[in-house]
């Protein structure tokens, strides 16, 4: 424990911006995102991969960033909640969550949004059952989920045009 831990050099692209850093091998991806880069929209809510507050997209796949080491994400492209808004325009999911009261305290919201992104990329017109499954790895203690499901349905409609 007291021996000096060799740092490892990694390159990760987050929200279109590329970063090169030397990190301890034990650093979690979520710690890298929050503490190294200061992107604090991605949250931590548990220590057993249950709550999904830390969900980001790693090469388009929804990933619990608390369960991946930063070194494992070397060379990957990552999208976090901060990357959803484009040119000052909120993503339809962000708008829909707000319009449908899909968030209260907002702590689960970034993770929920990222899981929803992945869900809609795979299933642009999901059924309620598919939505429930798509966010089943994301815990929300405030909303009771009903409004989140509504929000995702509304965003799906909006994105279908």
């Amino acid at each position: 424990m007291s021996e000096v831990i060799e740092k490892v050099s990694i390159r990760i692209t987050i929200n279109g911006q590329s970063y090169r850093r030397k990190v301890e091998p034990r650093l979690l991806l979520v710690q890298f995102i929050r503490e190294e880069l200061g992107l604090t929209g991605t949250h931590v809510g548990c220590d057993v991969t249950y709550c999904g507050a830390c969900t980001v997209l790693v090469d388009d796949k929804p990933t619990k960033s608390c369960t991946l080491l930063a070194v494992q994400a070397d060379g990957c492209e990552i999208l976090t909640v901060e990357g959803l808004e484009q040119d000052g325009e909120l993503h339809p999911l962000q708008k829909a969550f707000s319009e449908n009261h899909g968030l209260q305290c907002g702590y689960c919201t970034p993770g929920m949004l990222m899981s929803s992104m992945a869900l809609l990329a795979e299933k642009p017109d999901p059924s309620p059952a598919e939505i429930r499954k798509g966010i089943s790895g994301n815990l929300c203690r405030c909303t009771g989920y009903n409004n989140i499901i509504k929000s995702i349905q509304a965003a799906a409609r909006e994105m279908a045009g």
Binding site: L39, E82, F97, H101, T109
Partner: peptide
């Protein structure tokens, strides 16, 4: 009435300020 929530402006962008965000 149900006007847009003021809190959403920051929270929906991941720009809230929770204690652990403080560095």
């Amino acid at each position: 009435k149900s006007p847009e929530r003021k809190e959403d402006q920051r929270l929906i962008r991941g720009r809230g300020l929770f204690v652990d965000d403080k560095q």
